[in-house]
Amino acid sequence: MNEVLASTLRKAVYERLDYLDRLVNEADVPSRASLADSEIARMTAAWRSLLADHEPDERGRCRACGGWRRRRPHPCSVWTTAHKNLIVVDTRSTPTTGRHTAASYLPTAG
């Protein structure tokens, strides 16, 4: 993908997210309800598609992350980000920096 196309795609996605954020924060209740009707299904489909691309292979490594020589262990950053944003209720207490950030909010075996 050339730089111009990549930049255009990136800009369009961020503009859409900004637009949705503005609606959520500034729109009236009927507009927000309408937004939920139209956007929740699109967002869940997008997450499912992204997560499907990052399913682990037979060796437990992410199919999409990593280089040609070695894939990243599962769960990759896409799965940990999904967990943090879809499952963890209070993300303010979740560390956002540091060596063990990704694993710090994963469920523990028990």
Rank of each mutant, 00 (worst) to 15 (best):
K84A: 10
V88A: 04
R48W: 01
L50N: 01
S93T: 14
R70M: 08
H83M: 01
P30F: 11
P107C: 13
A6Q: 12
A27Y: 09
D28F: 10
V4Q: 14
E55P: 00
L9H: 12
L86Y: 07
A82Y: 04
E26R: 13
P107D: 11
D21N: 05
L51I: 06
D37K: 12
D18V: 02
S93G: 03
E58I: 06
L86C: 12
C65Q: 03
Y19P: 00
V4R: 12
S7C: 06
R10D: 12
R61F: 07
M43V: 15
D90R: 12
P30W: 08
A12R: 14
S93D: 13
L9P: 00
V89E: 15
V78F: 03
R69W: 13
G98R: 08
L23C: 07
T94P: 01
T44D: 11
T94E: 10
T8Q: 15
R72I: 06
L17V: 12
M1Y: 08
R92M: 09
P73H: 08
V13D: 03
V29F: 12
G98C: 12
T96Q: 09
R63K: 13
A6P: 00
V4C: 04
P73F: 05
W79T: 02
T101A: 14
V88N: 08
A12V: 02
D37T: 08
M43P: 00
A46R: 04
L20R: 00
D90L: 02
E15C: 09
D53G: 07
T80R: 02
A6C: 07
A103E: 15
S77A: 10
Y105H: 15
H83D: 01
H74W: 15
S93L: 09
P73Y: 08
P95N: 04
E3D: 13
R16F: 14
T8A: 15
A27G: 12
